[in-house]
């Protein structure tokens, strides 16, 4: 039995709809028109205990809605979900005690008091034994290296420092399932890396399951072996990150290094599109199907010193997936 089981899960919102302008606004007072918007449209997947899964999709794809259904905040309009054997929307205490939800754009720590006091509050909410609570808290504080910050009022912390505290607060009850919605939003690269490392370490120590959404591919690349790509509420891809490039990338990049004298005389356009040229080093974009042939030709034609074949950056791949998804949706 998988830890998270999602079958044909749907969520439809009724959104009020009206034309712009005063007349339309007045009309809508009397008769409110609504339109059904399918935020999540029959998605299915299973996640096993201990997996760290990345949830990718553009804004409005249905990622947050899915996370909210899995954490019990929203009632699905169709299909079924089970997390740890519970039906999330019933919000049983035994279920809520084992999960946590972190949203990068919203904080839950009390603004005017030090984080330590907010942690204490969580101890009461989760009814944690004092000794165990202190051990966990101090362990996290050491891991995050925030010992000198926990006594400052939260409002005096930087965004990154605050996010560290948020994460500590959200994990004090040692949840088995983590729903992280853009946890690194707006943070600088170093801070992103710290938070990532913390989540990875937590997963390693506790074997917890993590479902993560992020717009920063670095988060996903560093943490997730598996990704779910969702667009317009539908699941487009479920599998390894590398498989994503294999399936959706239409081209590869060939990096070639010649000696400086020959490089200038070569007609590169015959081999592929030049993406970058730096003295004797050239990067070419080649259709995926042509990669092998072009590589052979380059090696045969030119005095090659070094040659590499790379997948395009994952951001480019994702963009292609979304573009494909949009085309698919508009055909449907």
């Amino acid at each position: 039995m998988p830890l998270i089981h999602v079958a044909q899960l749907c969520k439809t919102y009724q959104v009020p709809e009206r034309e712009a302008g005063l007349g339309a606004a007045l009309r809508s007072l009397v008769r409110r028109k609504t339109r059904a918007v399918k935020a999540v449209d029959a998605i299915s997947f299973d996640i096993d205990a201990g997996e760290v899964v990345g949830f990718l999709g553009p804004n409005g794809a249905g990622k947050t809605t899915t996370l909210k259904m899995l954490s019990g905040l929203l009632h699905p309009t169709g299909g079924a979900a089970s997390v740890l054997g519970f039906q999330p929307q019933r919000r049983e205490a035994a279920f809520l005690r084992q999960i946590t939800l972190v949203m990068g754009n919203r904080n839950q720590l009390q603004w005017d008091i030090p984080a330590l006091d907010s942690f204490e509050l969580n101890r009461t909410i989760y009814a944690l034994p004092a000794a165990e609570f202190r051990r966990t808290r101090d362990e996290y504080i050491a891991l995050m290296e925030v010992g000198d910050l926990v006594r400052k009022p939260v409002r005096n912390l930087s965004l990154g420092e605050r996010m560290k505290m948020e994460l500590i607060g959200a994990l004090l009850h040692r949840p088995q399932v983590l729903f992280l919605d853009e946890p690194t939003l707006g943070l600088d690269v170093t801070m992103q890396r710290r938070l990532r490392a913390f989540v990875a370490e937590y997963n390693r120590r506790t074997g917890a399951t993590v479902l993560l959404t992020s717009h920063y591919m670095a988060d996903v690349e560093a943490l997730c072996k598996r990704v779910l790509v969702i667009h317009h509420g539908r699941l487009l891809y479920d599998g390894g990150l590398s498989g994503l490039a294999e399936r959706f990338a239409a081209y590869k990049t060939i990096g070639v290094t010649l000696d400086a004298d020959t490089a200038g005389a070569v007609a590169w356009d015959a081999y592929g599109e030049v993406v970058e040229r730096d003295g004797a080093h050239v990067r070419l974009r080649v259709p995926k199907a042509e990669t092998a042939r072009m590589t052979a030709q380059l090696l045969a034609d030119q005095p090659v010193i070094d040659l590499t074949v790379e997948d395009p950056p994952i951001e480019d791949v994702i963009e292609r997936v979304f573009a494909a998804g949009t085309a698919e949706a508009s055909h449907a």
């Binding site: 909210k68 954490s71 019990g72 905040l73 919000r91 205490a93 035994a94 279920f95 809520l96 005690r97 999960i99 946590t100 939800l101 949203m103 919203r106 904080n107 839950q108 909410i125 989760y126």
Partner: peptide
């Protein structure tokens, strides 16, 4: 309004009391 109620609702305590 701001969506932070989500945090209160994912806590294992009676939501009304909380």
């Amino acid at each position: 309004r701001e969506g932070t109620l989500d945090y209160a609702l994912t806590k294992p305590a009676d939501s009304q009391a909380l």
